[in-house]
Design a protein around this nucleic acid. Structure first.
Lengths: 333, 333
DNA sequence: TACAGTCCTGTAAGCGCTAACAGCCCCACC
DNA sequence: GGTGGGGCTGTTAGCGCTTACAGGACTGTA
């Protein structure tokens, strides 16, 4: 549709210097006189020259892009705006560089193939992986490729070398300590899937807080993070431990389920039973009563993953990060 | 970290053919004997060869990527999972091709600069633009670049050549007709910003439905899509038109505000006043009562934008699309 | 047998950039 | 006045692929 964009060579001609010099100016390398530099710069603006990414990539073997891979097809991942917030964080850091962001949803087999292609064809300089399940093949693929890779979250089996994660354990502990501080003594929990790092960590946090306070950690029901499993867990707990006066629920979705069971059973929240959730999903403030919960710093997760990847690309060896969580006190506890 | 990936030339050597032939096999062009083809294919799998994207881009002047640009920094855009859904749709279509998705948040000045760079450096083969405001500079930038560009949504001033939009007018009309069908006669509306295409279309839909039914279209309050403006609008309406028995609200956020005002004023929903929103944001099903609203096909929007862009890249001239909306009947009307 | 027409294949010239290399000039120092 | 060492610059060989172009090997036809 358009005329061909100007090339570096044309800039060189117009500026009356060689291509080498133009290249030096563009990459602001040393050994360029002020005179040449000025000549080149004005030639560049006059021509509206912008370096061709492909040519540069080919010559430098650097791609100028990183890829963010989202593995989970779990709609719950989206339900708390996780996705949008992570990307906002990633973008904020990348804006300061000249790296582009590529996005890949790799839940399907086709998506995994495409990821493999990107890896093999060196289509990106680095990888950020999000929402992997246990033993997710993507993790191994990334590792095998030899590209710098940063993970969001950890898996239980084999923690990745570089990751950023939220402090699930500390968050859970803070939640339970809040319950204790408000006078609760018979505290129960509904756990998430214990074969996930997050699920297990939140459970450990619960145990830590109760045991440290000299309370029982025996009121436990196991869920899978879903709303229905939260409801089921709450029923079990009420049947087995009718004396409970508080419950720490390992996800807001489960907490929503728990709240409706409590309502059915005629328990007042928080008077009879206090409830704390985890995640601060968008609907948490719209439940009745509004849900007290633990918020994860999701945008910061995106930011820090990106910063870590940049360091890796830069040849440094950063250390993995655990980001603090925050207790959001509303009405349910 | 790794040994250099195999090149096309190495494949050629191993297969005992020339690089030209290998290239033909890869791009499955004609004029390759079965024998050569097989030889090449097995060499490829043995070596684990994947074409280098940068080299191919340089040679073909095609980038193998399209960019999705999100302009708005409005968190409301995210609040209904708009973002995630669009991307899911885009990704679904892109998966069938070998195009990669680049993502750019271009709300900031820096973001706009980066967008310009992508455009100028031919960093992508095509563009999808989302959530533009009126007179958004991005729109003009895309146009000037000459790259194929598809818009999600329209602006009032100058509709883009290729766009996909939701049927705001039809959705509004269906909402109001639902109110009429359930016996309401004194129907009000709270509009969105009337300098946006969506805001104006929804208002037009309201007027169309009321006028066609021989009802008054005079009960109007103006809002800006936000929750507080919805509350303010509802107050005005109740003051000016105490006889109203239904209200069509041009966004769910505003509807949420309206609901709380109605509650304050002791109006029962839907008995005294029926309420219909627009967007079907995630919280709509958690309001009290659950909000009847108009759902936009957001994932389909992403899909269709992408399909349209593919056609454009393919040299065809598709026609712009208006996607149907759907009334989701819950408890508020 | 000669000829044109098909297929297939190899060769090589780019695509637009970077970076190593080699020169040049100029200055400082002895 | 000779020597050495910078700083600057031009030249050029790639980076790994695609794609004319120019054959060569066949086939079918005259």
């Amino acid at each position: 549709m358009n005329t061909r964009p100007p090339t570096l060579e044309e800039v060189a001609q117009r500026a009356g210097v060689s291509t080498g010099t133009v290249s030096r100016v563009i990459n602001n390398a040393r050994h360029v006189s002020d005179k040449s530099r000025r000549a080149v710069q004005s030639a560049i603006t006059e021509l509206g020259y912008v370096p061709n990414t492909a040519a540069r990539s080919l010559a430098t073997a650097r791609r100028g892009a990183v890829v963010l891979v989202i593995s989970s097809d779990d709609p719950a991942l989206f339900a708390n705006l996780f996705f949008a917030e992570v990307i906002t964080g990633v973008n904020a850091v990348l804006e300061e560089t000249d790296l582009q962001l590529m996005l890949l949803l790799a839940a399907s087999a086709r998506g995994r193939e495409r990821f493999a292609k990107v890896l093999q064809s060196r289509g990106a300089d680095g990888v950020m992986l999000l929402a992997l399940k246990e033993n997710d093949p993507l993790s191994k693929m990334a590792e095998d490729s030899g590209l710098p890779a940063v993970h969001g979250g950890r898996s239980l089996d084999r923690p990745p070398q570089w990751y950023v994660d939220a402090d699930n354990r500390g968050g859970a502990r803070a939640a339970v300590e809040h319950l204790i501080a408000s006078g609760r003594r018979n505290i129960a929990t509904i756990t998430g899937e214990l074969d996930t790092h997050a699920g297990m960590s939140r459970f450990m946090g619960f145990r830590e807080a109760t045991v440290l306070a000299g309370l029982s950690d025996a009121r436990v029901a196991h869920g899978d993070f879903s709303e229905t499993s939260g409801a089921a867990g709450m029923k079990l707990l009420l049947d087995d431990h009718p004396d409970l006066d508080a419950v720490f629920v390992a996800s807001d979705a489960m907490a929503t389920g728990a709240l409706s069971v409590l309502r059915e059973r005629g328990k007042r929240v928080p008077e009879d039973v206090a409830v704390v959730g985890f995640n601060d999903i968008v609907t948490a403030q719209h439940t009745r009563p509004a849900l007290t919960t633990v918020r994860q710093p999701i945008e910061a997760l995106g930011r820090e993953m990106t910063r870590m990847l940049l360091r890796l690309l830069n040849g440094e060896r950063p250390t993995s990060l655990i980001l603090p969580t925050e207790l959001v006190v509303r009405d349910s506890a």
